[in-house]
Amino acid sequence: MDRQFFYSAVRSAIQEFSGEQHVGGDQFGEDENFFDLGLITSLSMVRLLVQVEKLLGTEVDVTLYEPESLFTLRGLYDTLVPAGSLE
C-alpha cells in the first residue's frame, strides 16, 4: 500500500473523529504524536485502529506492538503495513 495514500486516509479519519478541519492535508508530520497534538483521545484511537483495519483488510492485534509505535503516521504505517505491500 502506498505510504501517501495511507497517510491521507489516516489524516481523514482523525479529522472526522476530532471534528477539526485543520487536520486535513499535510498539517501534521509523519512523526508527530497524535496524542501530544491533542488530535485524538484513547477512544478515538480505538476508532482509528478500526478504520486502519478496514483500510488494510485485516485485523490488528494491538497486543503484538508497543502502543507508542501506533501514535504517529510513520509508526502506524511501518508497524502495520505488511512489507510485501509497501510502495
Rank of each mutant, 00 (worst) to 15 (best):
M45S: 07
L55A: 08
T79E: 06
E53H: 02
L37C: 08
R11D: 13
L64A: 12
D2W: 10
L49P: 02
E87A: 10
F6E: 04
F71V: 00
G19D: 06
E20P: 04
S8W: 15
L39N: 03
L55P: 06
A9H: 13
D78V: 13
A83N: 08
G57A: 10
A13G: 03
E30D: 15
A9P: 00
L55T: 10
S18R: 01
T72Q: 02
F6C: 05
L49K: 02
F28I: 03
F71C: 00
E32C: 03
F35I: 02
E53M: 03
L39R: 04
G24H: 06
L70N: 00
T41R: 00
Y77I: 06
V60I: 15
S42F: 03
L73H: 08
L73I: 15
E59A: 11
S42K: 02
V52T: 09
E53G: 05
L37H: 01
S44W: 04
T58R: 15
L86I: 07
H22G: 09
E30H: 12
D78M: 13
R47T: 05
T63N: 13
Q4L: 15
E68K: 05
G84H: 09
G24P: 00
E32Y: 03
S69L: 09
V10I: 15
D36S: 07
G25P: 00
M45D: 04
V60G: 04
D61C: 09
